[in-house]
Write a protein that binds this DNA or RNA. Sequence first.
DNA 1: ACCTGAACACCGTTCAAGT
DNA 2: ACCTGAACACCGTTCAAGT
Lengths: 254, 254
Amino acid sequence: MVARVEKDVEPDGQTDEAQQAAKRRVALTRESILEAALRLCSPEGGGQLTFSRLGKELGADPTAVYRHFRDKDELVLALTDLTIQEGIDLARAALPDGPSDDWRAWLTVTSESVRASYLARPALAVLAAARTTASPAETHSVELLISVLHRAGLGVVEAAECYRSLLDLTLAMTQYTAAFSSLDPATQAKDEAAWAVKYATLPEEEFPLLHRSAPRLTELFRDDAEVFRMTLATFLDGVAARIERARQQRGASA
Amino acid sequence: MVARVEKDVEPDGQTDEAQQAAKRRVALTRESILEAALRLCSPEGGGQLTFSRLGKELGADPTAVYRHFRDKDELVLALTDLTIQEGIDLARAALPDGPSDDWRAWLTVTSESVRASYLARPALAVLAAARTTASPAETHSVELLISVLHRAGLGVVEAAECYRSLLDLTLAMTQYTAAFSSLDPATQAKDEAAWAVKYATLPEEEFPLLHRSAPRLTELFRDDAEVFRMTLATFLDGVAARIERARQQRGASA
DNA sequence: ACCTGAACACCGTTCAAGT
DNA sequence: ACCTGAACACCGTTCAAGT
């Protein structure tokens, strides 16, 4: 009976939200806000970052966040820093210390790690992939990537250009995938149905090649990860060709 | 004095909006709506597609559009069809009739044309690049692209995979650029400043390669078109390597 | 048959008022 | 010093009312 009056310890789950609010009301800090915001950006957290949801998650008035971040953009930038950092840590864990000579593995792991880190929070990927924060951790990572490409045989400037291409390719395709997966399910289904119907009803005489590759294309529609892997692999084949060309040029001039 | 009462013919520009409204009130059709919407999506038209702006542009109540399109998504999809169509027409004008043997020119022109067509309406690119409409014109274009790659030496399925990679690469990087250019100028400037400061103050001992390539990287920050060209070129180098490999395999098995 | 205008549930953001 | 809550200018969308 007493418990029923003291809502804070009410055990029956009826006032879940209020309980959470009470629990968290003490801890409205920059860190707790960022943590809650990251949760909201994930598919499990709803996949939408808004002030009202953030307020509810924190058990505070939505506008309380403005005491810690000047506006939504500043919040998004801070979240971007954390996500990039996580991607770099992920890559570092999968790679040997210091630069190795396997430039291809290095670039693949880095790219896939950044992608994975963003895709764990599609809502953030949509908002932030095109932004740059130039954080310290990122800078070290860039120097390392360029050094890997330089040691593989590319000139410094060409290595930097390659890094830039790879970064944009990765972030762009990640944002692209995140944007589609952030659409409401009905809209996604509409697009998918359009493709399926289309490919199923192609007259073979008019579209012989499309008809033969339709099963594979339909398969790829659902599998953004596979398309990304293919695209990245082809891009890196191109980088390999450039490295080969650079070596030959150096050989000719020597 | 009389003119002052009859607002419709007032010549002094004070009731510009009302005049436009009167002029266009007759022509609220699917076509006129699409035309106005495309105008709004362009940078000159404000670069934002909303019902209220659309209503103002048409001289009608914002909700009048709902008589011609079920919701915003249906409007966006119709605009996408027009934009893709324009991109294909653009490519066709720059390419010879029927498939040629210069697969590289074919792929480059097609990709750049679709990109240009979308970037003329960044607001649409942001909303629609990840969507698919599977329009008839698009289907023909896809069959042609696959045939170009197949004639170059790739197997049918591998050609289809290459087409898919190229399409995603193009649309993703286009959306990425459009997203950044759709940010308000102050935010864009913030990002740019972050980079510039960063690169200008890199200690040479700690970041020797980054220090040497900083001028080029700074240059590329402003020039999305150049980054796209570079990335596409490297990707196509990779496609060339795959074509070569496919030819060798056919030679070995023959 | 088509358009208008009030209404609703959301956005981000500001600001005076509370503690 | 930090939080609340009303308010504002926007979104997309619905629906009863007009013509």
